[in-house]
Nucleic acid binder design. Structure first.
Lengths: 243, 243
DNA sequence: CGTTGGGTTGATCGGTATCAAATAGCGTGG
DNA sequence: CCACGCTATTTGATACCGATCAACCCAACG
């Protein structure tokens, strides 16, 4: 994978959500990076680890997750190409959760040193990153709402719509069909329910003609019904910079 | 309330969690601000609003909350003196949730213009704030775990321990007793359960001799049991800067 | 006082966990 | 190509947690 294919999703997103300038993005693209490949289910960064690099998802999906004492696990976020899932390590050395590959994926690692130098030289890059972490935080807050208040049926609809909107931004939605490479077990861990229950909710969505999920791919059949279930208000994604 | 009493909780927190320098803090303390008072339950900032100032909680408690279409509400975070609950508005104009006073409280409003000027002059102040928003995000992630995976009994214990640790940092815990000015209805909205169920869980905690909550004040009786229930791992609060 | 907003308790219902078992899909090696 | 084994998916039966509905209690306060 060449540099040409690594940056576009990130740039697309930063331009749209943070209003990044072309100069700042060009400076970013000049940074050296190391590509590493991970396989489905492989842990990229472990809770407590202190990485000296930030990673950019070049291809594939990852997730943040926390495991509690009794072994139960909560998925905190799903990350797609163009995401910087451990940008926070620029400021806090230690991970407070795991970063795990959901699918086979390619990550570009960029050293903290180089990033910090760039930010010092071009404060606009720092602002851009800060904004990025703010959108990340806004997504986490919506995730709390999802887990705390919505019925599982609506919850799953919301999760799917959010992911679709983010994928759409980087051109990964075709014909209202897109990848969501989570097992039902993992979908359950994202929603705070069991895999058995997730399976039944998926069946309901299928029977109701809303959507179908097979081997990591979702097809939306009834957009109107889906909207109604998800009650999705995408302002929190800040798809226009607006600042 | 004079300037002397407004800054200490924030400074205490920033020194501990972001490793802020005295010079940066002094520069911060020189900023002009406007004090405003809010009464219990009063909305400070409404979803969609575009404030031109950031507020510092000088006294009292606030919360972030989101209300969904069917009227259900999720409390996203609890804010205590020294918190900057809408720092994100420096970068994103519009609120994507409500900020509401949980108790009568006093907020110091600082204009975005002045803050941005200071950040440009002293990049260390910007870093400090960025870090602050990162801790905020880490707290949100733990909140997801709490709502998604823990039993209500353990969930309430965790919520109480987290709040205690944050209050301890600003010197508001005495004799393992501290303020938590939420009604049972609100505690329920924070945990994603009803007020009736919250009431029963509180009764259980009382009967089991763990703690007592009366008129907005918690007293811990059995610290050991509480720890066991909460399974609290405070690393996410970043109580030492460590970067 | 009377009013009001929280808190408390009981009865019942529904959603979700749990346990168990069968089925389907997929990669590997014979 | 088929047999095997692993993992994910699917379905059923049952138990339990927490929602809902309804009442009542209590303390603060005008």
């Amino acid at each position: 994978m060449t540099s040409d294919r690594i940056w576009p999703p990130l740039f697309e997103r930063l331009k749209t959500t943070t209003g990044a300038s072309d100069q700042d993005l060009q400076a970013l693209a000049a940074l050296p990076f190391t590509l590493r490949h991970y396989r489905e289910n492989q842990t990229v960064l472990r809770d407590g680890e202190q990485p000296s690099e930030c990673c950019l998802i070049a291809d594939g999906f990852c997730m943040r997750a926390k495991t509690i004492a009794d072994g139960r696990r909560q998925i905190l976020s799903i990350h797609i190409p163009g995401d910087l899932p451990n940008l926070q390590n620029l400021h806090y050395a230690a991970m407070d959760h795991d970063l795990v590959a959901l699918s086979d994926c390619t990550l570009a690692f960029i050293g903290h040193r180089a990033l910090k130098d760039l930010i010092r030289e071009r404060p606009g890059v720092g602002d851009m990153f800060w904004r990025d972490t703010l959108v990340d935080a806004a997504i986490s807050r919506e995730w709390i709402v999802n887990v705390g208040q919505r019925s599982t049926y609506n919850r799953l609809a919301h999760l799917i719509v959010e992911l679709r909107e983010r994928l759409r931004l980087i051109g990964r939605v075709i014909d209202n069909t897109f990848a969501i490479p989570l097992t039902q077990e993992q979908l359950g861990e994202a929603m705070g329910v069991t895999s058995v229950h997730t399976n039944r909710i998926l069946r309901d969505l299928r029977i109701d003609g809303v959507l179908e999920l097979q081997r990591g791919t979702v097809k939306i059949f009834d957009e109107h019904k889906l909207q109604e279930l998800a009650q999705f208000d995408g302002r929190y994604l800040h798809l226009s910079p607006s600042a």
